[in-house]
Simulated assay, not measured.
Amino acid sequence: MPRSSSNRSGGAIGVCLPVRNEAGAGTGFAVHGIDQTDRIRAGFLVRDNDQRLELLLGNATDCDVGTTDPGGRVLDRLGGAEASPGSRRPTSSGT
């Protein structure tokens, strides 16, 4: 039966298979491994960038950040400017 293992700290994942002769006796094993270092490192970088952006947007108090569709309609807002004196929320037309 194949065994698989994963190194949670990064590196490689692999499968170990027994090698048998004609009589069925074990004569060794074969290992197939895949280096996952770059994929794991990229995942950490994306997560770190997301956390920094979340902190920035969550603590912004003097600006409005939002997403719009291709037509310019506001889809989502992370408000902060409404807390500043004299500011107002943009309408759904983006004004």
Rank of each mutant, 00 (worst) to 15 (best):
T61I: 05
R73Q: 10
T27V: 12
C16S: 10
P2K: 06
D64G: 09
N21T: 01
V31Y: 06
E22G: 01
G14V: 01
V46P: 00
G58V: 08
V65A: 13
G86W: 05
L17Y: 11
T37S: 12
D50W: 04
G24V: 00
G43D: 11
T61A: 08
A25F: 03
S9I: 13
S4Y: 11
G11N: 04
R88Q: 13
G80V: 02
R89W: 12
V65P: 02
F29R: 14
G33A: 15
L45M: 07
L17D: 10
V65D: 02
V46Y: 06
H32M: 09
G71N: 14
G80S: 04
R52K: 15
V65G: 01
P85F: 12
R77Y: 03
F29T: 07
G71Q: 15
A12K: 14
H32I: 13
G94I: 01
V46N: 05
G14H: 09
S6I: 08
T67C: 06
R8W: 13
S4F: 11
Q51A: 15
D62L: 09
D69V: 02
T68E: 05
I13Q: 09
D62S: 13
A23V: 00
N49C: 12
P18V: 06
G33Q: 13
A81T: 04
A83L: 12
G43L: 10
R3N: 12
V31Q: 07
G33Y: 09
G11H: 04
P85I: 05
P70R: 07
G33W: 10
N21I: 01
F29G: 12
F44I: 10
E22H: 00
G66S: 07
A42V: 04
A42R: 10
P85T: 10
E54W: 07
E54R: 14
L78V: 11
T91Q: 07
L45P: 00
G10L: 07
H32Y: 08
D48K: 09
D50L: 14
G79F: 02
C16L: 12
D48F: 03
I40M: 08
N59W: 04
R89M: 13
R39G: 08
R73K: 10
D38K: 14
I13L: 07
D76N: 06
D48G: 04
R73S: 07
L57S: 02
S9G: 15
I40F: 14
A42W: 05
G86F: 03
T68F: 10
G11R: 05
G80E: 02
T68I: 13
P85V: 08
E22C: 00
R20S: 04
A83S: 10
F29I: 06
G28T: 02
D48H: 08
G28Q: 03
L45F: 05
V19G: 00
G33C: 11
